[in-house]
Design a protein around this nucleic acid. Structure first.
Lengths: 112, 112
DNA sequence: CTGTGGAACTTGCTTTTTACTAGTGGCTTG
DNA sequence: CAAGCCACTAGTAAAAAGCAAGTTCCACAG
């Protein structure tokens, strides 16, 4: 160690912010749920239908997580016909541009 | 069915392109691997160090998948000291803008 | 030439996540 | 009041991820 003191081969880490993002998005279904919600609020069954393939329990779990993370909100409208509505929070809406980028990318680069 | 023929309450599906994107990105680690590779090519061990927490077997699997999907390429430089290098393909590089969006979003909305 | 160590994986086994039913309680519809 | 939708919760089985070790090829130290 003669000349390059201090510059100890930084091991090239992935951006920690990106890593944090993929703590949520890297979980199966989260991205699609968020993506669906970008089109507007939805109820539980509506989401289940939109996110083809997901099961009730996992949807419930993912929603709880995302609410906990502050990306979506859960509103209970008690009618009498009590309904639940999930919407994006401000933080969640911030994902819109990224989602759009992702969508256009997928359209060009991922054949169906 | 009198006036609204054809407009049968479309069940609001998530954009299929987005869903396709999350077929890859929705898997644990894929996003971070791709994100690391946006900073330049890397070898296996380099990736293992960059993607903190991933195991060898999963990294190997993810890389194979991503190669198969055409997002990254695997080059074998046989020296004698034979080394392998993973780089983004053109399709993979197309993810850059989306990644950037995601990173800035995470910086603002996801506290460490 | 023996020993240490890195690169790039693969294999085998355990633990965590997901998925697949079912079931609950409130409320509407016929 | 039976049948059905909504929003979930519970229980269990299958799939994925994690962990630890082993492998081959090579380089460098002693």
């Amino acid at each position: 160690m003669t000349a390059n003191d201090g510059v100890i081969h930084e091991p090239r880490a992935c951006d920690s912010a990106l890593a944090r993002a993929f703590n949520f998005l890297g979980k199966r279904w989260s991205g699609v749920i968020l993506g669906t919600l970008t089109q507007g609020p939805a109820g539980f069954s509506e989401l289940r239908r939109a996110v083809t393939g997901i099961s009730d329990s996992v949807l419930s779990e993912r929603l709880t997580e995302l609410v906990g993370a502050g990306l979506i909100e859960r509103f209970v409208h008690d009618g009498p016909p009590i309904t639940v509505e999930y919407t994006l929070t401000v933080a969640g809406k911030g994902l819109l541009p990224a989602m759009r980028e992702l969508t256009t990318w997928a359209e060009c680069n991922l054949p169906a």
